[in-house]
Design a protein around this nucleic acid. Structure first.
Lengths: 321, 321
DNA sequence: ATGAAAGCGCTAACAG
DNA sequence: CTGTTAGCGCTTTCAT
């Protein structure tokens, strides 16, 4: 279970560490017999270089810390998974940490990570963003931090998601397809501007009526809002989350309300379940891959320059609208 | 960005590394003035011990590798998340690797992990289990490997999940509530024995009729099977996965079929969406926490003894049955 | 009470 | 072509 070391290999072969190292790294200038002997020995004893030692010596890190919220919604899981995959393609491996609000635990975590990683990607959920305290703690460490989707952080790499673009397309689609009374359900601030933009982009004559029900955005909320939504007389409804939209769609299914004929439905987040429901849910998707590509770029660049970028969401039309 | 070292601290203070170390580790026998000086210096320069170096020296690892399938279903994500959380409570952090079937990449990953971790937890999806080739590769490395839910692996820690217990309870519940024709939809082998057990446990007189439709277990399959299921005359249906059950429930909702009155529905996996649908889906849940507790126990035990344990699934009754 | 020094496993500049 | 050696940052034994 122990694993053999370079030194042991050098003793076994009677050659110096330097020679063994040279052979194992495939460098030139070693007499074939010696080379073969070392190779044979290494293979027999299953020599595997100790990366921890190598990285210490080279002051190099192949591990990237990822700090994410404790409770994750589907779309965050998707983002995380994609980032893990993209990291692997550039020889990095993700060390996962969860944010649970306890500063002492957070410090302890960063302590344990020190020397192991140089880069930390912070991807909290939007609803429970990282606290300013946590940001300050992070600053105490000699780490390059990349914040995903966090506002108001100075002097750090920050990649954000522009909710407006996708929502704007979604609402314009509803308007163009002739909907006259558009209802929005939800209370998430980042959804505001896209809706506004869509109305502004439509000339007054064709602009539909707009209503909003402020409410949490869980499945249950969507379900419970069913009667109010139907009473409102809306012929299209935008939900701040797919979960909430699914709640309503289940209410609709239970009450024989036909989607999209009677009422069109659009959600936000591109949850998997949206494809697993009948009719399939139109939604707004996050720019997962592009965003993570930018993360990788920063990690690779050994960034001197602080990166700030924003990525657009996109409307995905399915059967519900 | 660089971070100060013990040596630099010793130079700064004019004291030996040993003394600095002693102070920083809170060990006794240091004159207060010197102690305070070092503490002050350490604080000013934000000294943070390099864990990579410490662990190398102490031959200790605080990182646990987790290898999981590339495509994960909801329940695997839940398991992974729980394991991450439990690991953190014992001061370990998870390094994530994905299994994509390429042996070269897999080797590369393990090479990169060498010296960083001693323990690897393998939790592939059940459907695309780990290949024997990957298992062999794993054996080449000086690692303690813990296999989750994998069959036929000798000489390694193996924790498995007993599907039968929960399914047996589920079916017995259906029988006891008076269902006469029970249909099973799906083709997953691990679901067989629990169903059989439930029928065997019921005396012949009360034993309902049993039918099976073999089929993939996606949402789409569940949806498409709608007509066949209704034609079958079944008054209860067990789906091999919640996803599949949800597909059928959406068919039912679209066709005004009342659940559970007309037909009772039970799924498997305890997906979140099952709670987000109307009516809420009865299901069989995996023993996530217990299983992961056992993982932690093995990691802590510095296991000489090979652990083999099985954990029971549990039936969760909700409104759909 | 404090310091010198060896060493975890590996790399690489610098001889020879 | 090959060996010696000085580290990476830290711990700890053994002197003093």
């Amino acid at each position: 279970m122990a694993g053999i070391t370079l030194k042991q290999l050098s003793e076994l072969s009677g050659l110096s560490i330097r020679t063994v190292s040279r052979v194992l790294k495939g460098q030139a200038h070693v007499v074939p017999e010696k080379r073969d002997l070392i190779l044979k020995l290494a293979h027999e004893h299953r020599y595997i270089p100790n990366m921890a030692a190598r990285n210490l010596r080279l002051n190099r890190k192949n591990i990237v810390g990822i700090i994410c919220a404790n409770t994750m919604i589907e779309v965050s899981i998707k983002k995380l998974h994609d980032l893990e995959t993209q990291l692997e393609t550039c020889g990095c491996y993700p060390l996962i940490g969860r944010l649970d609000g306890d500063p002492a635990k957070f410090r302890h975590m960063l302590d344990e990570w020190s020397g192991v990683t140089n880069h930390v990607v912070v991807m909290p959920s939007i609803t429970e963003g990282i606290t300013t305290e946590a940001v300050e703690i992070l600053r105490e460490y000699p780490l390059t931090t990349i914040f995903i989707d966090q506002k108001g952080i100075e002097g750090c790499h920050t990649l954000t998601i522009n909710r407006a673009t996708g929502i704007r397309s979604a609402i314009i689609h509803l308007i163009r397809s002739g909907r006259k009374k558009i209802l929005r359900c939800g209370d998430i601030e980042t959804r505001d501007s896209g809706l506004a933009a869509a109305f502004e982009a439509t000339d007054l004559a064709r602009r539909p009526e707009f209503m909003q029900i402020r409410r949490n955005t869980s499945f249950k909320d969507g379900f419970e809002l069913g009667p109010r939504i139907m009473d409102s007389g809306a012929d299209a409804v935008f939900f701040d989350t797919d979960r909430m939209a699914l709640g309503f769609m289940n209410y609709a299914a239970a009450h024989g309300i036909s989607i999209p004929d009677r009422i069109a439905v659009v959600g936000f987040d591109d949850d998997n379940s949206g494809r697993m429901i009948y009719p399939a849910l139109s939604t707004v998707a996050h720019p997962v891959e592009e965003l993570n590509r930018a993360v990788i770029a920063i990690i690779r660049s050994d960034g001197t320059r602080t990166v700030r970028k924003s990525f657009d969401t996109k409307f995905i039309r399915r059967a519900s609208s």
